[in-house]
């Protein structure tokens, strides 16, 4: 059975449901404190869950990205182990430069939402599309172009970059795994399909090798049908977000 470490930085608040979602697909999940790194390299993968690591001081994810534990995670990612950051975990991974990871520096940031309806923190259900044509550790169980119903909950979720050429590379490398779309799967650039004004509707980016993912939406909050609005009569059966965790399990087999 694959073993995943769920990293608990001070201020993280999604560790329990993230661990449950990992265990729901038959992997083992341990919640590991940021300052307890004794056996961290013994895990097969690492998930950085959502929250407010280090109070989001300066900018979301910046401080945690500099935490010593991230050096270990970087090394393990280079070895090909699976690393996934969700929401604040996404911000941490992007601030550490692992994503998009085309150069050895921070190339992107998660900027404050642009949203005509609610300013600041915004929590709602949206649609994302499996946009990547290549298979990677996170979409093995997804069909090409599959549209998923998942929630977002963030104030700084707008993928942004100063590097105008970067998007071209990301598209060419098939690194734009998840993009916000409307009900029918169109990558519509306007609110509400694009809930935060993210650059070309980016919701999640993988590294070139396809073993690291940074995504703003929360698949662990859509891992049971019970959690999906209007679908609770389906009870504890698998929700759309679970496929991402199933993909990780298959990849690690």
């Amino acid at each position: 059975m694959s073993k995943i470490a769920v990293i608990l930085f001070p201020g993280i608040n999604c560790e329990n449901e993230t661990a449950r979602a990992i265990e729901s697909v038959g992997m083992k999940a341990d919640i590991v404190r940021w300052n307890d790194t004794r056996n961290l390299d013994s895990y097969d993968g690492y998930v950085l869950p959502g929250g407010w690591s280090y109070e989001d001081r300066i900018r979301a994810g910046v401080i945690a990205a500099k935490d010593p534990v991230m050096n270990i995670i970087k090394e393990e990612a280079e070895k090909g182990k699976v690393v996934m950051g969700i929401c604040n975990g996404c911000q941490i991974i992007v601030e550490s430069g692992i994503i998009p990871g085309l150069q050895d520096k921070v190339q992107m940031a998660l900027a404050p939402n642009k949203n005509p309806f609610v300013s600041g923190f915004y929590c709602t259900w949206i649609k994302i599309k499996n946009f990547s044509k290549k298979k990677n550790a996170f979409n093995l169980k997804l069909n090409e172009g599959e549209v998923m119903n998942v929630p977002i909950a963030h104030g700084e979720g707008r993928f942004a970059t100063k590097d105008e050429t970067l998007v071209r590379y990301l598209l060419a490398n098939d690194q734009l795994l998840f993009r916000y779309c409307d009900e029918t799967g169109n990558i519509a650039d306007k609110f509400p399909a694009n809930p935060n004004g993210s650059l070309i509707n980016i919701a999640g980016i993988v590294n070139k090798k396809g073993n690291v993912l940074a995504m703003m939406p929360h698949p662990e909050r859509a891992a049971w049908m019970r959690q999906v609005p209007g679908m609770h009569s389906n009870g504890e059966s698998a929700g759309p977000g679970r496929k991402i965790f199933e993909s990780i399990r298959e990849y690690l087999k």
Binding site: T124, P151, A153, A223, Q227
Partner: peptide
Amino acid sequence: KHYDTEVQGLAVIR
């Protein structure tokens, strides 16, 4: 919609 209604993953009706 300013509030996190989904955290903890226990939501049934929000």
